[in-house]
Design a protein around this nucleic acid. Structure first.
Lengths: 232, 232
DNA sequence: TTGCTTTGTGTTGGATACAATAATTGAATA
DNA sequence: TATTCAATTATTGTATCCAACACAAAGCAA
């Protein structure tokens, strides 16, 4: 949907990643000037990226007031989690109608990655945990479903950034393993239950005792996300 | 999500409406120049609108080749309809857990509108039929769910524009009435069945003989495949 | 013809420039 | 000291401009 050959794509992608990984926390202002500077592009280009992120709900773009990382309210948070339950239920139901063997194989490979970085690289762990869910959705073969899941998982990261105390506890690897086991056996009932309680657990950890977050230096954070220029 | 106080909003909104109402058919080029002229704005402003529409899947924005109304493939069409079933199933399930009285009241008012223009103003009929589904989603109180339904209903319009022969047959008003009746009685089972068969009917009318509709566009499609293609 | 290069025209990608709006500062007054 | 309001500054909204690219037609070779 978004063609990466444009100049605004790296900006979009980096911002997105930074928001998901919570380097850019909810409420942080995203001035076009400074972002353009760190990426070496003009405001026009940055603006394009911001418009897209606004459409995805990761950024809040207010007229004459510029962009900032979205700050989902507690109500929106519940709304998003409920929607996520719906989408991921659909994912499970579709996967259960398919041949489990190649699915399980792919998932196990991913799980191995997750285990590899568990407790070592927390940022990577978090990303991998999110990608597990996206991978599940992709395995259904439905582009749209995968898109929606991708979007909603991102927004859940935002919610965690806003309300949860400990981000690393987002996804339990064992729970992923359990889900894979259920899928391997073709046990739809159990797979569904697994996913449901898994997501419910994430939600609880996020929304049980909500507390606020604060901001940081945008340019400094983004410079870490800027793609390294490899020029011959 | 999209603040209407910008200058690009009317452009976005008009284009969206035109696409949904099939005045702009799939594949039609959307040059920034001419659009900007008709709206009295610059290309920059138009571009903003196009980026948003691209993000929503209504417009296809290709680098250096500009924008055109999206042309969903038959595979994407099935994918989208399947997703729509999932989303609207969720809508029904949520509505069935709520107090039916105010819901039914609102829906009946809408239905009356639909009946009023049935057979008279086809464009308006089509729009109202689509809005019925969006209204259902809004009544759940979930912003996200309503957004998704809105988006997917729009994309279904696009599919109909591409593949169906008769657009006016999109939604049966009686079927809407039946659904309302089921909701009024709190009969979740029946409401679900209603919605399912209703959507299935729409899908069938759209995708049953897609070859005819596609052959209309063969010339246009082939003209884009310029180089070294063997003739039939 | 057929295939390949070239040139020309139109359109887009992106940077810059200027206008409009919001945020901030600071001085004057109570 | 607190408050108001005007002036300044910062940031965004939008238009315009130039370079880059795509597509089409014309020329050229075989």
């Amino acid at each position: 949907m978004y063609k990466s050959s444009t100049r605004s794509f790296p900006v979009y992608d980096s911002l997105r990643q930074a928001i998901i990984e919570q380097a850019l926390k909810p409420g942080v202002k995203l001035p076009e000037d400074s972002i353009g500077e760190t990426f070496g592009v003009s405001r026009t280009t940055v603006r394009n990226a911001l418009v897209r992120l606004d459409a995805e709900g990761l950024v809040d773009l207010q007229p004459n007031r510029g962009a900032s990382v979205a700050e989902p309210t507690i109500e929106e948070a519940y709304d998003i989690f409920e929607m996520r339950q719906c989408l991921e239920r659909e994912v499970i139901q579709r996967l259960c109608k398919m041949d489990p063997k190649p699915i399980v194989k792919t998932l196990k490979a991913h799980l191995k990655e997750e285990e590899k970085y568990l407790g070592k690289d927390s940022t990577r762990s978090i990303r991998l945990a999110g990608e597990f869910h996206i991978l599940l959705a992709e395995l259904t073969g439905s582009k749209i479903l995968a898109n929606y899941v991708n979007e909603i998982v991102s927004r859940c990261s935002l919610i965690l950034a806003r309300f949860a105390q400990v981000h690393s506890a987002e996804c339990g690897v064992e729970e992923h393993a359990e889900l894979i086991a259920a899928l391997a056996e073709g046990d739809a009932e159990r797979a569904n239950a697994c996913m449901h309680s898994h997501l419910h657990g994430v939600q609880d950890r996020a929304l049980l005792n909500p507390e606020d977050a604060q901001s940081d230096n945008v340019a400094a954070i983004l410079s870490r996300y800027r793609p390294t220029k490899t020029k011959p």
